[in-house]
Nucleic acid binder design. Structure first.
Lengths: 283, 283
DNA sequence: GGGCTGAGATACCGTCAGGGTATTGATCGG
DNA sequence: CCGATCAATACCCTGACGGTATCTCAGCCC
């Protein structure tokens, strides 16, 4: 199967309309019809149900849509990473590391410093983004490695090495009664009057129903806590970023958070391998 | 990038010789040379170092080799799974499940029975093989789901759901002094006189150095234990398969073994989803 | 029912990408 | 310096892919 055929099929499968798909692909409709027929013949599978004046995916078609998207992502990633590898030999951008905007910047700083000191180190670009984008950037080859936080981020489809584990703290407005405690339990902080836990967006961008303010990032959340509108459960390391109007108390029974360095299973270029090695020797 | 170009490049990168690569691809050498040059031009990257009467990979080239192989695997997997999805609509083979030959057959039997009872169930083929092959079969699209055992099998690049966790036992020849004990610790069974722990092959097929017999599968190992040439640390569930001449004693501090059902991240066809759902509701 | 319309399939044609053969050019061994 | 080896170049030819025109058929309005 050629990627051209796959791209054609994915376009039709997404549009469910040969004409629009052809337009999107920048070709005429007849060659597209032919290409899909040819693909179906070669696969020995009916991919589309063209009856009733409309196009629908068959079971085999929806399998090929899912698998084909992944395969196209892999091909694009190969292309991008090769381009970047070639550039890094001569010009600037070397590795691209992606992590959450709110992540423990201290660990990241130590990692970057340690790696830069290694012989043969390559310049590292850092992208900060939300958790939903991280996976996409890695899959599409726009990034090479990520710092993720289990159990929050999905590491499915990635190789990982654990870097550090830390407990969690509850962040409260300074002066809140609980801040006098040496530690609390989860039961102590659910249903705090006036201080609900926030709602994070689902992977699809929508918010689950319930009380509590909607937040998109950690800075927003801390803002809300300072305003006395929410409380937050966060990894310990966030303490270094707290302003004076916030206080943190350890939560004994909150699941501990593990920071891992993650990369696509195959793409173990010398540069990625070096960065991972540096990271694991960091402790 | 077309898969044809990728296949060409991978062939050259593996052979490091245009003539042989062309032969392997069934084309003449000049078109291959041209295709690679064209690929290099399009990527803006030098992939091969053709100096000194021999061909060597550049840094970018080795990146493309690794990424390209993965991408080609993904494309082939898409093709195979689509073919199988089409067949399963009409003819026999539906899902292909792969697991270790020595795995807990009781869980597998329960899973297959429960799934077969589901409405809309598809025939499931079972492949038994060594751990090294499991990943390859999934990646290449020859299989859809696997039963793996953490921490032994790598689940990198896969989605997983935990099914069960069990402790481990040491398997000894019946009548061995330790079989009188209610339980043992790891320290008790390393360096047992005449009963070394066996050596399993590395992913590349070679054996690590050291004492202890080389084994390929669990049946072989149990044979050696029965002969009094080795002892074995295995998941509890293997007890149901033991002959009378073998005895098992729980090992308190051995890492517990988790059986997971695993599948490639994207390929969540209706059939795979159904099998996974059945598996998680099994307990 | 007749005609209209929207949409995919078919027919047919031109072009250029990709493959083949023959040859050149460069590098190394003797 | 010569021959051997191997990649690159030159040149040609076929067919795959894309384009335009047309067909066919299902649904729909009157």
């Amino acid at each position: 199967m050629e990627t051209r055929e796959l791209r054609y099929f994915v376009a039709v499968a997404e549009e469910l309309h040969f004409g629009r798909a052809a337009q999107r692909l920048g070709i005429a409709q007849p060659p597209l019809s032919r290409a899909i027929q040819q693909l179906e013949r070669r696969l020995g599978a009916v991919l589309l149900d063209r009856s009733r004046r409309s196009v629908a995916l068959t079971e085999a078609g929806s399998v090929l849509l899912a698998e084909g998207r992944a395969a196209l992502d892999a091909v694009d990633a190969a292309e991008r990473r090769t381009r970047r590898a070639a550039l890094s030999a001569t010009g600037r951008p070397g590795l691209v590391l992606v992590t959450k905007a709110s992540a423990s910047s201290e660990l990241l700083a130590r990692l970057l410093a340690a790696y830069a000191a290694e012989p043969g180190a390559v310049p590292v670009d850092v992208i900060l983004c939300g958790p939903a984008e991280q996976g996409r950037l890695l899959r599409e080859g726009r990034a090479d490695v990520a710092l993720l936080h289990r159990p929050f981020d999905s590491t499915a489809g990635l190789h990982t090495e654990e870097l550090s584990t830390e407990g969690q703290v509850v962040v409260l407005p300074a002066g809140h009664p609980l801040t006098a405690r040496a530690h609390v339990h989860l039961a102590d902080i659910t249903d705090l009057p006036g201080l609900p836990l926030p709602r994070w967006p689902d992977p699809d961008g929508s918010y689950p129903p319930g009380p509590g303010p909607q937040v998109r990032d950690h800075a927003q959340l801390l803002q809300l806590v300072a305003l006395g509108r929410a409380c937050a459960v966060s990894p310990e390391s966030c303490r270094t970023q707290l302003h004076a109007d916030l206080a943190a108390v350890p939560v004994l029974d909150a699941p501990s958070v593990t920071t891992v360095i993650a990369w696509p299973p195959h793409s173990r270029s010398r540069a990625v391998a070096g960065l991972v090695r540096t990271a694991t020797q960091l402790r």
